[in-house]
Design a protein around this nucleic acid. Structure first.
Lengths: 334, 334
DNA sequence: CTGAAAGCGCTTACAG
DNA sequence: CTGAAAGCGCTTACAG
């Protein structure tokens, strides 16, 4: 276990002081090019590796961003986390990541651990059901924190919130189904009481009311398994259903599968719309109509918003909503 | 921006020296319970937060594990990464994570950045096509490194490799299809030339040869999109195909969808088997037969293997294979 | 443009 | 069982 070379070793080899090496490391332009090159050569020769822990101790920033996600297995969040990690890596930042698995206790531990690691900032898609003081440790640490996709802490002035305009998305989906002739339209999925369920349902409820139609709502987990199971439950209770808007694509895709199992086909008699427009929608058969949320664009925008905050020191606006739009496909057309 | 309290502050408040505080932090049992409680109380009162960067600088370990994954969007790897992260969190470790996206240059940058962050160890499911010296930086850093799911560096004595026994899995799948009466069986998916493709195909090839049957192979990306597209290509070239083994479930699920689009149904005339047994197999209709790899068990086993290495200092055996087993479902039965 | 010096917040022998 | 001291590898004013 030989000692890793330090800036002292590099300095000695390059014949400069360690301050100069440090300046080269920080790409300072007050170092003469010739000196810089000599230092870089010495680094290469010695196999020098930058020690971020030491740098962080002194300057209190290690280029580490914390990422806490409520459900990393859901492809919607996987895509968000992956694109965010990759775009941050492009800008020289690393990511510590944690799946809170919709569990407040786990989320609390993850947050604490990321603060200990001295993350520069935190991006969190929070778990519902956590105590109101869940973010207090973050406030005390005076850490830049972005709430994304879900807002659980009301202090959006402290923890800016960004998401999609879900309400108008479900309104568009409802108008689309009504326009296609559907009348007995159900909303399926989404945990009762979650703010995001309310948001994704609100446009449906208002459009149904505007059209004088009776809503029918089936809440449940946002999983494929629930969709499969809900197909039977829904058709038992409301056999005449002719349109379905699902809380998300997983539920919708599960529903398609559950309906197929019951011998029902999705199409003119039973129109189906999902939410999120994950990649799989296009590959399903029939192709799944969905309210498209550009999650990859949202992730790069999140990176941009965060780095602007870190660079300029000005907090982003309290709430931002990215537009969504319905992609109508075979499951609700024809 | 007030200064965070340090162990000095805690020591002062508790009326002990900072060494004692440090010992409490490390759960040393040479501190008298009464003293320990006093220190803990002082910490709580001051809102003390452990500074891992400082600890790491001194002791060169921050409880950070690096995780480099070739394709984080593939649910098989997502599940692995998620379970690994969660089981490591259970043991007090955090994860820096990076998606190399099957890109050698990205992988190299991720590895370098993780070394700079001073990770305690690295778990990598590597990208194919990287230069032979891709792992050299890791060897120089003398970092414990586990190659998982794919082996790209031959030095398994340095970088122990663990994966599944894919060859016997595809053999079992082939025997199953032959037993069900299929004779014109194709293997679809997997990039030509990748070791993992060879492994997953080898059992199929040997069983076909043993049964005196002609193999038919369609290589391509391991994605759902490829599966959709391959359905047409396969049936055009070999319309009489009566059995298909796919490189992974994504290809198989895409294939199911592509076949449905062409008006073909999976079942007695065209039996289908996937690989990995991701959760979706059970929810598809017909349910998808698949070679089950217990990826979640593999992830917790990886955590155990890694921590054993860190705790005892003895490197795990050079190669480990977890058994797999075929789960026969509707797509290949009846 | 470069160097000497202090210090970030811990851990780790070493005394006592 | 507890304390005093050194040092991990950087960055950051401050001189020159």
């Amino acid at each position: 276990m030989k000692r890793r070379p330090t800036i002292m070793d590099v300095a000695a080899r390059a014949g400069v002081s360690k301050s100069t090496v440090s300046l080269v490391l920080q790409r300072s332009d007050q170092v003469k090019p010739a000196t810089r090159d000599a230092v870089k050569e010495a680094m290469a020769e010695l196999g020098y590796v930058y020690n971020r822990a030491a740098a962080q101790l002194r300057s209190s920033s290690a280029g580490l961003i914390g990422l806490v996600i409520n459900d990393l297995r859901n492809p919607f969040f996987t895509e968000f986390a992956t694109v965010l990690q990759m775009s941050l890596a492009d800008r020289g930042y690393s990511c510590v990541i944690g799946n809170s698995d919709e569990t407040p206790a786990l989320q609390a531990r993850l947050i604490a651990s990321m603060i200990e690691h001295g993350v520069t900032a935190l991006v969190i898609s929070p778990t519902y059901g956590a105590p109101d003081d869940a973010f207090d440790a973050l406030a005390r640490a005076e850490l830049p924190v972005l709430q994304v996709l879900r807002q659980t802490d009301a202090r959006t002035n402290l923890f800016p919130f960004s998401s999609f305009d879900y309400a108008s998305g479900s309104a568009e989906a409802a108008r689309h189904l009504i326009g296609q002739g559907a009348r007995r339209i159900a909303f399926v999925g989404g945990q009762a009481g979650w703010a995001i369920t309310e948001e994704r349902m609100s446009g449906y409820l208002s459009e149904m009311a505007a059209a004088g139609l009776e809503p029918r709502v089936f809440h449940g987990p946002s999983s494929r398994a629930f969709g499969v199971e809900a197909a039977g439950g829904l058709l038992t209770q409301y056999p005449d259903t002719d349109g379905i808007i699902c809380f998300n694509d997983l539920v919708a895709l599960g529903m398609m599968s559950g309906l197929a199992r019951l011998g029902r086909t999705v199409g003119p008699d039973l129109r189906l719309v999902g939410f999120d427009d994950i990649e799989e929608c296009e590959q399903a058969w029939p192709q799944l109509s969905s309210v498209s949320c550009d999650i990859s664009g949202f992730a790069t925008e999140t990176t941009a918003r965060l780095l602007r905050w870190l660079d300029t020191g000005t907090r982003p606006e309290a709430e931002t909503r990215m537009p969504v739009n319905l992609i109508a496909r075979g499951s609700s057309l024809g």
